[in-house]
Nucleic acid binder design. Structure first.
Lengths: 239, 239
DNA sequence: TTAATGATGCCAAAAACTGGCACCATAAAT
DNA sequence: ATTTATGGTGCCAGTTTTTGGCATCATTAA
């Protein structure tokens, strides 16, 4: 058995039994006393808090608060969590958000990639706010989540995006833009993009976008997105 | 360099360069061609999707969607993420929430502990809704996050909780209750608990609780919490 | 004092990893 | 058809890491 798996088994046994002794653990995981001791030391190095007491009746005790998980998440999943947490922080009403931030920071650090940092920069542009009371939610279509996979590579790799867009008047056009940010004003998502042919920024309601496609090999540089909190009052005019 | 770290380096290089060849990677990570090939095989076993093409101009290509992280999170951190995601789902306005759910499911599964499932049962009672427009947020105190660590073991281990409570009239009493659920109505958190001395459920505003303390060795069983969505209209009467 | 327990250092055996080699398959270029 | 650049596999000896046994010490309850 690989060291890593054996150490996981040790943690499991310690959790289940509350307290145990080196010899018992050694028998349970099929390793020698010496090896278990080394594994315990390794776990302590990794941050597990394991108390020990010598003498008859002594043994090991794992502090449950120090138990950790080793989930493997994809970049997309990290992105999803990121949005969730960023949104809650923007809403500003939940405690634990500090902990959630810390957790995400860990996840990002463990990710063998620095692309998530790029995503984070886009997230900085997000604003999540309560819906104005006069807006009729049922009348506002939501974007189709099935379209999202097409957007991700565009943001990750700064690729131009081509899609069909049906504007407020129902007129359908084909656009070819450089995605700059996502703007979230629940329950609507907007794509903020630079339109090279018009030399200007445009907002697109995500639910009015269809057939999005990344244009391969078209990396562009990021532009200064011309809004911040002041976007708030603009809300009613977006569509 | 340890195999694990070398493999991480490989993934980093592949992500950065888009595509590469075995020989180039071998030089970059300071290992032999054979070893890199073995590492690639190991990565594939772990779920990384690495395409390869033979012949001149060929090479390796890592599908970015398959890149994974190996963060180690504590139970408390998982709880924090859980709340974040559960809240967003309750708000019902964000896409990606399916992905976030999947990510959390993975995290929970990887956690060598089943305590998080217990936490999840509490979370099922959460309701997160937009604040009624007539409520003046600035007048509503928020709970002190510093108090939270005292609550966590109470929920995790079903322990009785003792605390001081200052009610709406400013009268301070000492309570001794069995915590049953957290009720979130932004920006306020409520503790829903069974009060054995009164043989009834009580709601406590978290920001009016002080000096919370777990009562060790006092495990209790869960009671049927007598509310669901119908709690919504009750809102104005809670305090 | 004794016995049970955690903890550390040392060393040889065992296991895993590594790098070199030969060799194969494929596909583009000549 | 040949050459060349590439990924991929099997084998084996050398190297490195891990393991298990041993001796030994410290601590504490009986």
């Amino acid at each position: 058995m690989k060291p890593r798996h054996r150490q996981d088994a040790l943690v499991r046994n310690l959790r289940r039994q509350g307290t145990s002794t080196i010899s018992r653990l050694a028998e349970e995981v099929g390793a020698s006393r010496r090896t278990v001791l080394r594994d315990i030391a390794a776990l302590r190095d990794e941050g597990f808090v394991i108390h020990s007491e010598t003498g008859p009746g002594g043994g090991l005790f794992l502090d449950p608060r120090s138990v950790q998980t080793t989930a493997r998440l994809s970049v997309a999943e990290v992105f999803a969590l990121l949005i969730s947490v960023a949104s809650m922080r923007a809403a500003g009403t939940l405690p634990f958000s500090g902990l959630a931030d810390a957790a995400l920071a860990k996840i990002e650090k463990a990710l063998p990639s620095d692309k998530v940092q790029d995503l984070r920069r886009f997230l900085d542009c997000l604003y999540v706010g309560p819906l104005a009371p006069e807006v009729d939610i049922t009348n506002l279509g939501k974007m189709d989540p099935a379209l999202l996979p097409a957007f991700e590579p565009a943001f990750l790799n700064r690729l131009r995006l081509r899609f069909h867009y049906r504007d407020a008047k129902g007129v359908e056009t084909t656009r070819h833009v450089e995605p700059q940010a996502m703007l979230i004003l629940p329950p609507l998502w907007y794509l903020v993009a630079w339109d090279p042919s018009r030399q200007d920024f445009r907002h697109f309601r995500m639910d009015r976008i269809s057939a999005p496609e990344c244009v391969e090999g078209s990396a562009f540089r990021r532009r200064q997105v011309p809004f911040d909190d002041s976007v708030r009052p603009v809300r009613q005019t977006l569509d």
